[in-house]
Amino acid sequence: MKRDDRKAGRSVASRQAGAKSRSQKGNPALADLLREARKNKDLSLQDVADATGLSVGLISQIERGLTTPSMRSLRQIADAVEVSVSSLFARTDAEDAGEGRHITRKDMRRVLNLESIGMHMEIMTPTEGTPIQAFVAYLLPGGMSGTEFDSHIGHEFGIIIDGQLELFLGPQRYLLNPGDTFSFNSETPHRYVNSGTTMTYIHWVITPPIY
């Protein structure tokens, strides 16, 4: 792991830890986008709850920025309001349309902060035109994908750069350390958590893209 990436990771972790110590608020920008998308489709909170199986209360909290969804819940809500998950990632004004199809500069990565579950993601591949998607994930101690198992079409591969990851694939549990890699069919029920005491930093690849 390069020094600047380590520094960036520590900066992300410290910002998230500070935010978490002050409150359990979610991501206001994400909340606004989800609420706007729902209203654009003329859907009620109950409509989204019925489509996702999530409670009206949880969806309301997410839309008010009081909490952030798990990775699975985020995809379910995005599907219900008919937007792509990638459209919910914060974008930078630094993006150059001329090279954006092939090159993603470090300061051009799309980012998503999910403070309530202790996770920060940065997409390293272009928005469109690629059959694979690569991203980095930072997990605070106790950070996770969510408490529920997820499954979807695709295949995933990753390498643990720093920290520790507890990966659950169906009934199997794996404890991964720096340098360990994983690969699995995304239709296998899966979830993961940083069960260590320091930030976990992961390079992740998934096909087809889902974020």
Rank of each mutant, 00 (worst) to 15 (best):
Y174Q: 10
L34N: 03
L176N: 02
E82W: 02
N27L: 00
P141H: 09
R105A: 04
R105Y: 03
F157Q: 02
D42W: 13
R38W: 01
S70I: 13
T125P: 03
S55D: 04
R3G: 12
I159G: 00
D4Q: 14
G143E: 00
T207D: 02
P209L: 02
M199I: 05
K20T: 02
Q24E: 12
F182C: 03
L167H: 03
I132W: 14
D162R: 14
L176H: 13
T207R: 00
R110H: 06
P131K: 01
Y138I: 12
S21Q: 04
S14Y: 03
L140F: 03
M124H: 09
V48N: 10
G142S: 08
F184E: 09
K2Q: 15
R35W: 05
V56F: 03
I153N: 14
L165K: 08
G179E: 03
F184Q: 06
L167Y: 09
L43Q: 12
R75K: 10
Y192F: 15
I132P: 03
S60A: 10
V56A: 04
S86A: 14
L54S: 06
H190A: 07
E156K: 07
V81G: 08
K25S: 09
Q172P: 04
A13S: 04
G53K: 11
K7S: 12
I160Y: 06
D180W: 12
D96A: 10
E36F: 02
I77P: 07
A97L: 14
R15C: 06
H152R: 15
T198Y: 01
N113V: 12
V12H: 00
S70Y: 03
R38V: 04
G26N: 05
R64A: 07
G129H: 07
F168V: 04
S145L: 06
D93I: 07
S73N: 15
F168D: 08
D107Q: 12
I159E: 03
I117W: 01
T68S: 14
Y174T: 10
E82T: 11
D150A: 15
V193N: 00
G196A: 07
Q24I: 07
R91P: 03
A29F: 04
S183I: 07
N27Q: 12
E63Q: 06
L176E: 03
P126M: 05
E115T: 05
M71D: 02
K2F: 14
I77W: 01
T68D: 01
A31N: 08
T147E: 15
M1G: 08
F184K: 05
E63A: 04
N194R: 00
S186Q: 09
P189R: 06
Y201S: 11
